[in-house]
Design a protein around this nucleic acid. Structure first.
Lengths: 191, 191
DNA sequence: TTGACTGTCTAATCCGATTAGGTATTGTCT
DNA sequence: AGACAATACCTAATCGGATTAGACAGTCAA
C-alpha cells in the first residue's frame, strides 16, 4: 500500500451507489465520486477502467443485489402467491435503490458484458422458474416471462420518472397490474 | 437573414431527429448536430436555448408525432379492436423512431415543461378514451390506462435495448402481451 | 536497509457546452 | 439606389469532466 486511504473497489462502489440512489444515475461522474471519497478523479483509474468500468461494476452489483431480493421473495411461497411476491419485491427494490435499478438497465449485447448478461439472466430466471412452476405449457413460458418483465419494468420506470400524473393511487394501480398479470397467467394454464 | 444557409428550427430538428434515430439519443450533441448541418456549434444558440432547448423541442416533436400516429390508429375501430390497434401502432412508432421515442421520455415535473406535460397527456388521453369507451367502470379506467402504458412502454424499452435474449419470437411475445392486456380489460367490464 | 510495489498526486490534453462579441448578408424604408 | 437594422453565422475564449503520463510517498518483503 501507499498513501492509501483504505480505499478498495468495494468502498468506491458503495460511494457510487449512494450518489446514484440519492441524486440519480446521471449524477455519477468521476468528479463527483472522487469528491465524495476525498480523492482526485485520476486516482480512480487505479481501481477501475474509467467511468465506464465503474458503471459496469455498478450494473453487476445491482443485478446481484436484485437477484438476491427476488430469490428471497420467490422462496417464500408457491404458485401464484410466489409470483405475486416476486412482483412486489421487484417494485420495492426499484423504489429502494432507484440508482442501482437504473444501473442494471444497460444493453448487454452478447459480444461485450458477458458477465452482466449472465447476471441479468439470473434475475430473469427467478421469474421464469416461478412461472414455469405454475404449470403453464412450456412453449408459453417465454412469452409470459416477457410480459411480466415488460409490465414490471414499465411500471417501475414510469413511476420513478414521475410519469404518472397523480402520485395518489399508484399503489392501487400496481396491485391491479399484478392482478391482471397473474390472472392472465392462470388462464394460460391448461387446467 | 444574414450569411444564412436557410436553416430554421424545423431543419435543425429534422437533422437532430436523424441523429437520434440512427445513432441513439446519447449521440445528440451540439457538436454532432452542428457538424451534420455544416455549421459551428455556437451558431445553434441563435435558434435554441442550448442543448437542453433542443432536447425539449425534440420531446415535443416526438410527442406530437406519436399522438398523431396513435390517434389515427384509434380512429380505425371500435372497442377492443381499437385498443389493439393502438397497441400495435405504439410499438411500430417506437421501432420506427427509436430516438424520438426516447426523447419523449423525460420526466416532466409540473413546474417546468408544461408544454411537454400537456403533449404527453395528449398521448395518454388517446389510450384513456379508448379504454373508457369499452365500458369499464370509471374508477377502474385510470388503473387500466396505467397498466397498458406500463406494459407497452416496458416491452418497447426492453426490445429497443436488446433486453430480450432471442430476437426470434418477439413478435409473438408482443401479440401475447396485447392479448393478455385486452383480455384483462374485457374482464373488468361489468358485462 | 533496500527495493519493488502500490495508490495517490500534479500537470497536461482533449472534447463538448456555453458565452461574448465581431461581421457579413439580407430585407426594408426613404 | 443607398443606408440601416436585424439576423444568423462566425471566431475566440472559458469552463468542466474524462483521460493519460509521469512523479512520489508510504508499505511490505527480503
Amino acid at each position: 500500500m501507499a498513501r492509501g486511504k483504505g480505499l478498495d473497489r468495494e468502498a468506491i462502489l458503495a460511494a457510487a451507489e449512494i450518489i446514484i440512489d440519492r441524486h440519480g444515475w446521471p449524477a455519477l461522474t468521476l468528479a463527483s465520486l472522487a469528491s465524495a471519497l476525498q480523492i482526485k478523479s485520476p486516482s480512480l483509474y487505479a481501481h477501475f477502467d474509467g467511468l465506464e468500468g465503474i458503471r459496469e461494476a455498478l450494473a453487476l452489483r445491482g443485478a446481484s443485489a436484485m437477484h438476491a431480493v427476488l430469490a428471497a421473495a420467490a422462496s417464500e411461497g408457491k404458485g401464484e402467491a410466489r409470483l405475486r411476491a416476486i412482483c412486489y419485491a421487484y417494485r420495492r427494490f426499484a423504489k429502494n435503490h432507484p440508482g442501482l435499478y437504473a444501473a442494471i438497465q444497460r444493453g448487454s449485447s452478447p459480444e461485450e458484458g458477458t458477465a452482466l448478461a449472465l447476471a441479468q439472466y439470473e434475475i430473469v430466471r427467478v421469474v421464469l422458474s416461478a412461472i414455469a412452476a405454475t404449470g403453464v405449457a412450456e412453449r408459453d413460458t417465454i412469452h409470459l416471462v416477457r410480459a411480466m418483465r415488460a409490465a414490471l419494468h414499465g411500471f417501475t420506470v414510469l413511476e420513478l420518472e414521475g410519469g404518472f400524473g397523480l402520485p395518489r393511487s399508484v399503489e392501487t394501480s400496481f396491485e391491479r397490474l399484478v392482478d391482471l398479470l397473474i390472472d392472465g397467467i392462470s388462464r394460460e394454464r391448461p387446467v
